[in-house]
Design a protein around this nucleic acid. Structure first.
Lengths: 239, 239
DNA sequence: GCGAATCGGTGAACGGCGTTTACCCTTGCA
DNA sequence: TGCAAGGGTAAACGCCGTTCACCGATTCGC
């Protein structure tokens, strides 16, 4: 709340504070990767950082707030990862770029299973309330979705949606997708959004099942299946 | 280990024991539905049942074992639910029966979000080890999958798989799906199994995202999307 | 019928957890 | 120089899973 609330003159105090916050987050993420989401505990973090547990309350409102902040950071990490992949393939067809991004998403998830579980797993507390009280996470998730929407937008610039008659009347669709339009506006024809959400659920389904080990009964290597589903989905997205 | 290890002569002691076990499980499931997976605690259960926490160790090896037993029960519940739906639609086309079963799966998941999270959510501890040390769950999950495979079998009796050339050579496919064949044998052509797993990941993806609240940013009512995806998937399964 | 073993239960304790409170020292600013 | 705010601590409360020693009742073999 000082006049220098932006990044101007980080004032010794603020610098130390920022460092401590970074240390806390680092410790939390170390615990996350080594022991899973439940291994994140204030006392363990405090031990790692060299503080006592109550001291952490000077930096976060409690364990939930800390985890929330970390989830936001993770979304940002994942977003830049996917974004970079999109940039690496600049110039290629938009839909093939999306395919690359989807592969990057899967790779990231497999490389960071605990983080993925924290971000995309079951929100334990009240099963849904978790998603309720987390404005920052919604924002971070929105920015993440934005990167996909951006590339999808490129595609529909060159291949405008021709509007094959959809099962749902447009009025009903507009009502259904109101949460989307409230967040992202109306950049796309609603049937396109619909297709995109369907594609996203497929990507999530196969990656989540793989990361959570729910496909171990079926196969040793999910990658071929992933590629087949990805090809099908992108083809469908190209309508 | 008594000579009457089967259900013969339930011997007073065994009867009381079975009742207590049922009470414990009931209490645990009450806690599960009211407070989510993390609300299951030995002490809370003991309070509900009218015991002390250590007493529960006479019935279960610890919290994890108890939760494991409950997950097995839940899989059995879900299995009979889906099975009953299949029976209700006996005589109909096999693939439309599968569609009904899929709808039943979604309905059950939406009606039992906490249970669903426990069964199909992120296995928190070591992210994968959970699935590792749980033979009974694998069995229960296998029985659950079996009910779908049974109906799928009916379909391929009447419409034998014609074997459109698959992207993968059969030898590679056999290797990939070895875990499946070890559990379920070789009742189906492997490409069929492949199609089935793909269908299952789609069903899981859309239902899990809905139950976990990960689709709230997009839509208020997932059902139309679900129906569209279901139709697409069943159509694909009919190849 | 009686002794002995097993079963099922308890209370106490250990260590870990999140969180709150009261207190303190240091830093930074007027 | 003084004083307020920031950042830290120790102690405590009430949860948790788990282990241990102990004990009464039940059951079983003789």
């Amino acid at each position: 709340m000082t006049p220098a609330m932006t990044t101007a003159t980080p004032s010794r105090r603020e610098r130390l504070r920022a460092e401590t916050i970074a240390d806390i987050k680092d410790a939390a993420r170390r615990l996350l990767v080594t022991g899973g989401p439940t291994a994140i505990s204030l006392r363990a973090i405090a031990r790692d950082v060299g503080l006592t547990a109550p001291a952490l309350y000077r930096y976060f409102d409690g364990l939930d707030a800390l985890v929330l902040a970390i989830v936001s950071d993770l979304f940002e990490d994942l977003r830049t990862t996917v974004q970079d992949i999109a940039a690496d393939h600049a110039g290629e067809e938009a839909l093939t770029r999306i395919a690359h991004m989807a592969r990057g998403f899967r790779r990231w998830a497999l490389a960071h299973p605990a983080e993925f579980a924290l971000m995309f797993g079951s929100p334990v507390p009240g099963v849904t309330p978790f998603s309720g009280l987390c404005g920052p996470i919604v924002d971070a998730g929105a920015r993440f979705g934005e990167t996909f929407f951006a590339v999808l937008g490129e595609h529909y610039e060159h291949h405008p949606y021709v509007g094959e008659p959809h099962d749902l009347p447009d009025a009903a669709l507009r009502e259904l997708l109101r949460p989307y339009t409230e967040t992202f506006g109306d950049r796309f024809p609603l049937p396109v959004v619909y297709l995109f959400v369907a594609a996203w659920t497929r990507l999530y389904g196969i990656v989540a099942m793989e990361v959570f080990g729910h496909l171990a009964w079926a196969t040793t290597d999910v990658e071929p299946l992933f590629e087949v589903e990805l090809a099908r989905t992108v083809r469908q997205l190209a309508r």
